[in-house]
């Protein structure tokens, strides 16, 4: 069933892709291929591949249990929050938090997770900033003035 759903989704996306390719504005001078044809070909092949998945699906994959799915979703949210705070809050705090939370997700021990977060954040900052010379800010830029 999963293959059939994904195959159908593929066909829909591929058709949408072909439709948006047909909207590409052609430049004044067009070579024989133009900017549209290559996307057309890819889209068409993708539709065929999607059809093959719908018609001849593989065995059902082993999906994670609801609990594990929740954990993965949570990890995803942690990473998104990390991506968004890395610049405004500087390296140290978001890294400590994100690393600590991920560590806690893998093994539920509070002290261990806190130490991992703090240790990784400090250790990696020293390596990145001083050994590798990357232009990172440890704390929010405003604090430095």
């Amino acid at each position: 069933m999963s293959d059939r759903i994904f195959g159908t989704l593929t066909i829909v996306v591929a058709l949408a892709y072909i439709a948006s390719a047909s909207q590409i504005k052609l430049p004044f001078l067009v070579d024989p291929l133009g900017p549209r044809w290559f996307p057309y070909i890819i889209g068409a092949v993708a539709v065929l591949a999607g059809l093959a998945m719908v018609l001849r699906p593989d065995d059902e994959p082993e999906w994670p249990a609801l609990m594990a799915f929740g954990n993965i979703g949570l990890a995803c949210l942690v990473l998104i929050a990390y991506a968004l705070t890395l610049r405004p809050l500087g390296f140290l705090m978001p890294t400590a938090l994100a690393a600590g939370l991920l560590s806690y997700q893998i093994e539920q021990r509070k002290l261990q997770a806190i130490l991992t977060g703090v240790g990784l954040s400090g250790g990696l900052f020293i390596i990145f900033k001083f050994a590798l010379g990357l232009g990172l800010y440890g704390v929010p830029k405003g604090w430095l003035n």
Binding site: L79, I80, Y82, A83, L84, L86, R87, F91, T95, A98, A99, G100, L102, S103, I106, E107, R109, Q112, A113, T116, G117, G119, L120, S121, L124, F128, L134, G135, L136
Partner: peptide, 28 residues
Amino acid sequence: PPWVLLPGVTMVSFVGIYSISSSWFDLL
């Protein structure tokens, strides 16, 4: 142990991408 390794690898990947593009969009 994996509870150190995995967060460590993740953070290194993020900093790597961030250091070439400085863009939250690329991280997302």
